[in-house]
Amino acid sequence: MHRTPTASPTASPARSQEGRTGAPPKPSRPASGPARRRIDGRRWAPLGFLSPFGLLFLLTFVAPICYALYQSLFKLRRSGLGLAPPTEVFTGLSNYADALGDRVFTSSVVRVLLIGAVQVPLMLGLALVLALLLDARRTPGKRFFRLAFFLPYAIPGVIGGLMWSFLYQPDVSPIAGALAHVGLHVDFTSEGALPWSVGNMLTWGWTGYNMIVIHSALKAIPGEFTEAAELDGCTGWRLAWHIKVPMVRPALVMSTVFSVIGTAQLYNEPVIMRAVAPNLAADWTPIMAAQNEVAANNYHAAATRSVILALVIFVLSFGFMRFVNKRGAAL
């Protein structure tokens, strides 16, 4: 990535400067002169340039996590009669024991992982097929198809959710209406259909994005590879499967990681679905469950659930990347 092997930033500024002009160092120059100021400026520049981002990053990323960790170690205790205001007491890991023993929360974690286990392979499989078709030499109308597939990604997730919730709404759903004409009666908001309906919202919104990522990786494959294979008679699907797919593995791996993370933090789509599916529980996903605790003023429980979910996602994504790295894929 770094195209700066000769004039690397590690070289001291004074030395490289003198090297360029070819002049020997001037020992007579007073240390407090402009050179000194310049070197000082250079030493402090990283701090100066980094601190605006750094301070705000500490405020909005690091501090909230630390605050949540801290809050997760306390509980509110009410006094015997409940007249005095409740006090915060340190309770160690007992909030974690409560959260892990809370069937509603653990099943929300399992639910999003199950949705991810089905939805992510389906979506990435579709994205891969579309990317390969767009990459094939003789496919017509590539520009149009690429734009069409990409359009859903341009629609904000919340607005996509609103659209689909209308399309799912019992009694008025135009899709269910059309299916009823051919004798199929479906209810997208029934208990059993909900995970599929939400999964479809995700697939609709993100297939195009993943297709673009995979397609870019396909385009980066050197032409000699595919031409050599074609000369050997390896064309069409065999070319795609044996030559192209293995070469875009890193892109597929990254897409998998980001998609799994995406399902673990599921929130917008099911929240919007609740307007048409009252049977969808308010704590259907982990973030919804944590938000539900906030609504009930159980801030400590909410903090605990946030920390647990962050840990789950951290372990999932880093574990997956290490696993893949060990097997020798370039990331």
């Binding site: 990323f61 996590i65 949540a68 809050q71 929130y267 944590a290 903090a303 946030s306 962050a310 996602i313």
Partner: peptide, 12 residues
């Protein structure tokens, strides 16, 4: 992901 920071940020 950002949504994970949203709740702790709200609490803070």
């Amino acid at each position: 992901p950002a949504p994970l920071f949203a709740l702790p940020l709200y609490l803070m």
